[in-house]
């Protein structure tokens, strides 16, 4: 092999610093980026594009502009689903968070048995949706469940098919999902509460603050970042909720418990209206991105939320 000329050597040096060495670093992350691109990014971009077509999944697609979105705004079922999602989120932001805060605050105040309580509360969070629904379809069954048990003692407000009634189906689902989630919130808030400086409580007590006042003026402000973050993940999770609705009611009866995800699923995989389903996906993504972007913008500006 002949000796490289100085010029060739310089080229080789450039090639090495700009290609070989970076490649030696990038090689570690390239497989990860490829899988993410194939599973998430490419289909997400196609999803956005499909939303502007009338594609049915097999034949030619035609570009139809904003027609799908126009249709969405006139679709009573989609409107029902959106309202149901908002209701779902609203209840979730109040009840499970309140129970979670109560549980965590009480747990922070005891010394014995904290570990056991935490363990018991957390177990339902480990369960799959099919398990939660199996448990509660039985316990809310009019013949075997809690309603029937209470009815034996003359208390008859719960001995009917909760998931079969238009007025109660959605609340039944929210209850099951809430049962699955609140223990996680207890553990999350408890972890934040144990970080709170004990001296703050000491000072509050010396000032004669009651336990409720201590909670309001010491605990809540101190765990605010965790609280806000939990509200963010609850907003996202409840907006995208699918499993519990699909399994318990399929969105029925008569769309009474329909949510955006189940409606999208029906449009895509039963009606093969891929373009329309994609436009629902875009609306969902937009709705989720509202609190998400507010959160990140405020964080970036250094707000202590």
């Amino acid at each position: 092999m002949s000796k490289h000329s100085p010029r060739q050597a310089a080229h080789w040096q450039l090639f090495k610093t700009h290609f070989v060495e970076p490649l030696g670093r990038w090689i570690y992350i390239i497989p990860l980026l490829i899988v993410n691109a194939v599973v998430i990014i490419i289909p997400s971009v196609s999803g956005i594009l499909y939303a502007f077509t009338d594609w049915n999944g097999t034949s030619e697609a035609t570009f139809i502009g904003l027609d799908n979105f126009g249709r969405l705004f006139q679709d009573a079922v989609f409107f029902r689903a959106f309202i149901n999602n908002v209701t779902y989120t609203g209840i979730f932001l109040i009840v499970p968070i309140a129970v979670g805060l109560l549980g965590a605050y009480l747990l922070a105040g005891i010394r014995h048995g904290q570990v056991v309580y935490r363990l018991l509360y957390f177990i339902p969070y480990m369960f799959a949706s099919v398990i939660n629904t199996q448990i509660w379809r039985y316990l809310l069954h009019p013949k075997h469940g809690v309603g029937a048990f209470l009815a034996d003692y003359g208390i008859t407000f719960l001995d009917f098919a909760v998931f079969g009634r238009r007025s109660t189906a959605l609340y039944g689902i929210v209850f099951v999902d809430g049962w699955h989630t609140w223990g996680f919130l207890v553990v999350l808030y408890l972890a934040a509460m144990t970080q709170v400086d004990k001296e703050l409580y000491e000072v509050a007590r010396l000032d004669g603050a009651t336990r409720l006042q201590q909670f309001r003026h010491v605990t809540l402000p101190s765990i605010r970042p965790t609280l806000i973050f939990s509200m963010l993940i609850i907003f996202i999770g409840t907006t995208l909720v699918f499993d519990h609705v699909y399994i318990l009611t399929g969105g029925g009866p008569a769309h009474a418990s329909e949510v955006m995800s189940t409606y999208l699923y029906t449009q895509a995989f039963e009606n093969f209206d891929v373009g329309y389903a994609a436009s629902i996906g875009v609306m969902l993504a937009l709705w989720v991105s509202v609190p998400l972007s507010i959160f990140y913008v405020l964080r970036r500006r250094g707000w202590q939320i």
Partner: peptide, 29 residues
């Protein structure tokens, strides 16, 4: 890595891309 911070940020928010946005195109792929 050049752009490493941006990638880290992507992996932080990447978990919040809703499955509903990409499940149908992914099914077709």
């Amino acid at each position: 890595l050049r752009g490493g911070d941006l990638l880290t940020f992507y992996f932080l928010v990447g978990t919040s891309v809703p499955a509903q946005l990409f499940i149908v195109p992914l099914f077709i792929m």
